[in-house]
């Protein structure tokens, strides 16, 4: 490495170690920039794809109050997608290119959204578990080293914790309701528990990005640490609901002060990541369809904007000539 480059790199690491935020115009290693674009755009894609499973129940929400709350929630996810694409653009990425990468299957999004929403209780379970798991990760990211990402996370976290309470409250209503409703809640927990644990990513020993991301303080906790934190927080909440976490190995460990839990089915994890989840194909088809069918709208909006600016120019010229 040439000495100048080496000095820059050392200065950069020193800033990170001193807990300074890195801002868009600052020098940064290419690999740092790439890692962030990858991570932020994955996060943006997850928000947008995540609109689909929940949006699936907007038209069937069981009361008008629930319908409004769910609509507002899914709309928040779209808003998060927008800020995050914006944060990725501060690193020189282009939103259109990022979206193309998603549609071409080159970019990833959170695998959890490849599971189906089969009952109303799933909307509660997504809020409680999926948003709950996301918050663990995102609270950590409010302290991430890249300024615009950290700031986007502060706003997103506030909304996500509201969503999580809303989800839990849906389940609480079911669990305090009729037997059929309680069963619906239990069934949702059975299906969403393990995929939620998988949201934290592969185990630390198999995670190829973790070590460097920790050094650069993009990540501040490992996948396994976050997963354990999630289990510790969530199990008592399930107890309060009166439904059972579907893990026979789950047990409070006095000595460690944590819950022990069973082994994740990593085959399933890798299958879903590589495209073989229950809804991978449908999710991508829905996104691609929306994008393709929206092409004429985007073109027309551009054409109109151009026409209008030309018209204004002509009018301005005419006005000058008259004067």
């Amino acid at each position: 490495m040439d000495p100048k480059q080496k000095a820059l790199l050392e200065q950069f690491q020193a800033r990170i170690d001193a807990e300074e935020k890195i801002e868009p115009k600052d020098w940064m290693p290419d690999e740092y920039r790439k890692t962030l674009i990858r991570q932020i755009s994955q996060h943006a894609h997850s928000e947008v794809v995540g609109m689909l499973p929940e949006g699936n129940w907007i038209s069937r929400a069981p009361s008008l109050r629930r319908k409004v709350a769910l609509l507002a929630k899914v709309q928040d996810e779209a808003g998060h997608g927008l800020y995050l694409y914006g944060a990725a653009e501060t690193l020189g990425a282009d939103r259109e290119d990022l979206i193309d990468e998603l549609h071409e299957g080159k970019a990833k999004y959170s695998s959890i959204f490849n599971y189906p929403t089969l009952s109303w209780a799933d909307i509660g379970a997504i809020g409680w578990l999926v948003d709950g798991a996301a918050i663990m990760n995102q609270v950590m990211l409010t302290r991430t080293s890249y300024g615009p990402y950290a700031r986007a996370m502060v706003r997103i976290c506030k909304e996500e914790s509201f969503h999580q309470r809303q989800g839990y409250e849906i389940l609480l209503a079911l669990c305090r309701g009729a037997e059929a409703q309680k069963q619906m809640a239990q069934d949702a927990l059975n299906r969403w528990w393990w995929p939620s644990l998988m949201m934290f990513g592969p185990s630390d020993k198999d995670s190829k990005h973790t070590a460097q991301s920790m050094r650069w303080k993009i990540k501040r906790k490992t996948n396994d640490e976050l997963r354990q934190q999630f289990v510790d927080v969530t199990v008592p909440q399930a107890d309060f609901l009166g439904i059972e976490v579907p893990d026979p190995a789950l047990k409070w460990n006095e000595e460690s002060g944590h819950y022990d839990f069973g082994e994740i089915n990593w085959d399933e994890f890798w299958q879903v990541v590589s495209g073989n989840g229950p809804c991978n194909r449908q999710r991508m088809e829905a996104r691609v369809k929306a994008h393709q069918e929206g092409a004429w709208v985007r073109e027309a909006a551009m054409a109109y904007a151009e026409k209008r600016s030309k018209r204004r120019e002509r009018e301005a010229k005419a006005a000058i000539q008259v004067a």
Binding site: M51, I58, L71, G294
Partner: peptide
Amino acid sequence: SEWCGHGPILEQD
């Protein structure tokens, strides 16, 4: 609300 998640542009969604 049937458009939610399927809009032609995220802003219009």
